[in-house]
Design a protein around this nucleic acid. Structure first.
Lengths: 129, 129
DNA sequence: CTTACTATATGCACATTGAATATAGTCATT
DNA sequence: AATGACTATATTCAATGTGCATATAGTAAG
């Protein structure tokens, strides 16, 4: 039967690629932000300049906008070029809310993998080496 | 500087696609297994028949074999067709070992997202609705 | 004017993925 | 031994996702 595209958190498959999108929604949850400026804020979620690609960032923001999860306006920054400033929508907040249980499940799956490894590797501790 | 392809856990980017590969290595850690039979064992790690694709499974096993992380032989099952039975190699065990800290980091990143959400959503609890 | 920086956006080649399909041996029934 | 159901492995294909490089352009400093 599958859960089909139920509007929320579409895509039954648990892809980690979406981690960036979720992180962006999280950052925008309580205050607006713009692409370039969000980069350093993403460090709070473990993104480093090495593994964060600027192109992917802008594409993700566009994708979120296309889905209606954020809205954007051009704002004059006073200093430097204008910025496309993003604000989360009510739909975006719903989407984020719906992602939480999925994140929790994913977390427990990772936990189980770690626990399984620790159990298995201690069982074979008396091996060679 | 980046960590480059340091032999272990190659690919600096934390892709969740590899979750299947890691799960397979985990299952093969202490006993051999074959493709079709591993499917139900994967349920222990949260894979369901809906989100597990048989084609991806065989491709992952082949990929692991290409990397030298598992080896395979054809075995007569007594019942039914022959099976390509996989066994983890020493390199495969090393790879799995090296993945553990990465899994732990990933887990803590997810935890932080969840905690951040719970904090933020409680801050705005007095909103509408 | 030119250089450096901020900021957004796009093009392209490549990798991953799900779904469908292919291949083929085995088993039970007739 | 012919049929059909099932086990088991493997491959093709189209769609999507990705990193990297590059394009575009406004602003600031000299």
């Amino acid at each position: 039967m599958k859960q089909k595209e139920s509007g929320c958190c579409a895509s039954k498959h648990q892809k980690m690629e979406r981690f960036l999108e979720i992180s962006l929604l999280m950052l925008l949850f309580d205050k607006k932000g713009y692409g370039y400026g969000l980069i350093e804020q993403l460090e709070d979620f473990g993104f480093t300049s090495e593994d964060l690609n600027i192109g992917s960032l802008y594409r993700s923001l566009r994708k979120l906008a296309d889905q209606g999860l954020v809205s954007s306006v051009w704002e004059d920054a006073g200093q430097g070029p204008k910025r496309r400033v993003y604000t989360i929508t009510a739909e975006g907040k719903d989407e984020l809310h719906n992602w939480i249980p999925i994140l929790k499940e994913r977390k427990s799956r990772i936990e189980q993998l770690i626990e399984t490894y620790e159990k298995k590797s201690s069982d074979t501790q008396g091996d060679k080496k």
